[in-house]
Amino acid sequence: MNYFTLIISAMLVQNIVLAQFLGVCPFLGVSKKVESAIGMGMAVVFVMTIASAISWLVYNYILVRFHLEYLQTIAFILVIASLVQFVEMVIRKFSPGLYKSLGVYLPLITTNCAVLGVALLNVQNGYNFLATVINGSANALGFTLALILFAGLRERVDEMNVPASLAGMPISLIIASIMSIAFLGFTGLV
């Protein structure tokens, strides 16, 4: 497995939001300002990388050993929920500035299906530990990239003269779908 291909594939070709349609809720919810999009993106990178690693460990050393692979979904939810709590505590203690800037986005990640989705995909694809960590962080970077691009577009659209019936969420959904089509252009890159 070529790790470079893995990164390009996870970030662009198989972009978690725009090609796999996971984590659409924060994608639409936290994309009104580039600033908050960056904050959310950072939080997702942080959590998704660690969640991938720990869920891989739990899967391979606990679930596989006892032939409990069918419990992966519920076990991963447990891992992610506690991990987010833990990360929140650590950040709060050691970096109050980062804690303030992440604000509400950090606990929101608990319910972000992209994190669970990546953890499950890692296991499904049979990646080894290093590939899992790389895939997790690359997916999170892809999410951040899509989120920041989308937030930038929305900021510009806000200043445009949008027809009343399309103003707000409708035009945002159209933008999101056009972005998704644009990302289709990366198909065949890997």
Binding site: V58, I62, L63, F66, H67, L68, L71, I74, A75, L78, V79, S82
Partner: peptide
């Protein structure tokens, strides 16, 4: 095994 394993994971995280 399933119950014990999940309970243990939960306990450790807790």
């Amino acid at each position: 095994e399933a119950i014990i394993a999940l309970a243990l994971i939960g306990l450790i995280f807790g």
